[in-house]
Nucleic acid binder design. Structure first.
Lengths: 130, 130
DNA sequence: CAAACATATGAATGAATATTCATTCATGCT
DNA sequence: AGCATGAATGAATATTCATTCATATGTTTG
C-alpha cells in the first residue's frame, strides 16, 4: 500500500483560499482520484458521518461518542480506526479514556461544505439500486 | 445535549471555521445524515469521481464520456444512472446520443471543495482494512 | 423496413465492508 | 494484587455494491 506523501501545495497558491473561484481546475489524475475517493468514502456512511458531525462540535471520549451516535462501542471503535487511518480524526489517551477529535479544520470544512451543497441540491433521491 | 456550540478551536489547530454561510450549521439530524451519506457515496468511488470530474469540464455524450474515463459502456451507464437518480447529473437526448452534464453549480462546487480539502489533508492513508 | 449505432437494463458474480460477538489489552482504583 | 472500566482487536457473518455479459430499447440513415 503506497501513498504519495507530499500533497502540500499541489494547487500552487500557498494560502488558503476558497476554491470557488476555480482558477485551478478540478484536475483529477489517476493518482488523486484514488485518494479523494478513499477519503470521501469516509463520509459516505451514516455511522461515520454522525461520528464526524458529532466531533465537529468538539472532542469527546470514545464511549460517550459511541453513545451519542447510537452505536455499539465495538462498531464505533472499528469506524474510528478507519477514520484514524485516513487521518480524519485523532485520538489522545486521557486516563482511561481516549478522547477523539477531528484532525484539523480541513475536515471540519469538508464536512460543512458537503452538507451545505448536498442540502442545496435538488436531489430526487430515489436511487433504485443498481 | 450539547449540540450547537461552536467549534472554538478546541484542538488548538488554529482552526476557526470560516464557513461561507455561517447561518448554515452542520446540523445533521437522522434524516439529513442518510441523504448526505447517500449523496457523498456518489463521490466515493474512482469511477464516479472521474465521470463527474470530466463532466465538470463540460457536457459530453455517454459514449465519449465512457471512453474518456476508460470504462466500458455498460459499467459507465450503470454509474450514470446512479448519478442521475441522485440528481447529480442530467442527461439530455440529442439524436442518437444522450449528452450528460452536471446538474448544477452545487455539484461542481461540491467536487471542487472535496478535492481541495482532501488534497490539503495530511492524510496518512494506510487503511489497514477493517 | 432493415441495418447500424447509442444507450439502458437485468441477472449474476465477486470484492469490499459494516456489524456483531467474544476476547484481549490497557489503565485506574482500593 | 485484584477488580472494574474503557478501548481495541480478530473472526465470522451479512450486506452492499461495482463490474461484466447478454440483451433490450431507442434513434437515425439507407
Amino acid at each position: 500500500m503506497f501513498v504519495g506523501d507530499r500533497y502540500d501545495d499541489v494547487m500552487g497558491h500557498g494560502a488558503v483560499i476558497p476554491a470557488q473561484d476555480a482558477t485551478e481546475r478540478v484536475r483529477l489524475d489517476a493518482d488523486n482520484v484514488a485518494k479523494v475517493a478513499t477519503t470521501l468514502q469516509a463520509l459516505s456512511t451514516p455511522s461515520r458521518l454522525l461520528i464526524l458531525a458529532r466531533l465537529r462540535e468538539g472532542p469527546l471520549p470514545a464511549t460517550e461518542l459511541a453513545a451519542e451516535v447510537g452505536m455499539e462501542q465495538s462498531a464505533c471503535s472499528h469506524q474510528l480506526r478507519l477514520l484514524r487511518n485516513l487521518g480524519l480524526v485523532v485520538g489522545e489517551r486521557q486516563g482511561r479514556s481516549v478522547v477523539y477529535a477531528l484532525h484539523d479544520h480541513h475536515v471540519a470544512e469538508l464536512l460543512d461544505q458537503a452538507v451545505y451543497h448536498v442540502e442545496h441540491l435538488r436531489l430526487g433521491i430515489s436511487d433504485a439500486a443498481d
